[in-house]
Design a protein around this nucleic acid. Sequence first.
DNA 1: AAGGCATATTCTAAATGTGGAATACTCTAG
DNA 2: CTAGAGTATTCCACATTTAGAATATGCCTT
Lengths: 126, 126
Amino acid sequence: MNVATFHALADPQRLEIVELLRLKPLTVGEIAAQLQLRQPQTSKHLRVLQSAGVIEMQADANRRICSLRPEAFRALDDWLTTFRQLWEERFDKLDGYLQRLQDSAQPPDQPPETTPPPPPKPGDPR
Amino acid sequence: MNVATFHALADPQRLEIVELLRLKPLTVGEIAAQLQLRQPQTSKHLRVLQSAGVIEMQADANRRICSLRPEAFRALDDWLTTFRQLWEERFDKLDGYLQRLQDSAQPPDQPPETTPPPPPKPGDPR
DNA sequence: AAGGCATATTCTAAATGTGGAATACTCTAG
DNA sequence: CTAGAGTATTCCACATTTAGAATATGCCTT
């Protein structure tokens, strides 16, 4: 996962910009107006978001239309997936269970069993 | 979505810590050793992660066992969900979610300036 | 070409974040 | 109580970031 993505989103105003663009693409001026930001500041924030690959800007005459880049959010989602077992362990196992069930049309010999043995004590010398 | 979460993850070493803890909870010293960090620096990074709610620390004698907080990642996932339409075709259950989100995302504390997205009106008196 | 609009860049000062080193705190063992 | 391990805090120097103001650049219309 790219740190730049998190850094780009780690600013209140940039986060607002992103959430605003979720609705639809906007020009720099529209973003500045909606969020009550000054134009130069808005441009700077957009540059950071663009460098991080969070948004892209398409030229239209003398304006720039800003829109979100799906890739950035997909990457975030993929990264999050590697943590998903933190809160979906049961579903994860169940999912695998159902997957194999569908695949072979035969229940595996090991039912979905929650196996959460507490962290083993790191030994106790002496 | 909380900016603090993004800020906490917007540092290379903190991101490494988080990805390390994905495997299993570790003590401060173990984290420092694995990532070749100095202990004070590690403590500082952990404090940021804890303040952001990304990790939690459980006291065990004079050591602290650090582990990821599922809530933080679930919140991230929920937030990401509001962008999921960017790259997914189907909006099954997502549809209602987005609807309510848009509905409550704009509190009526704005004067008659709430002109969201309609096309630019050609006629503009004054 | 001139004027006007939309956007980008530069400069500066203030604020914030980071690593290093030294040190303080806390718990356990004896 | 003393020693030591594990962790937290403080102070300082340095780099990065940010807002603001002024200004520059690019594009369209007349």
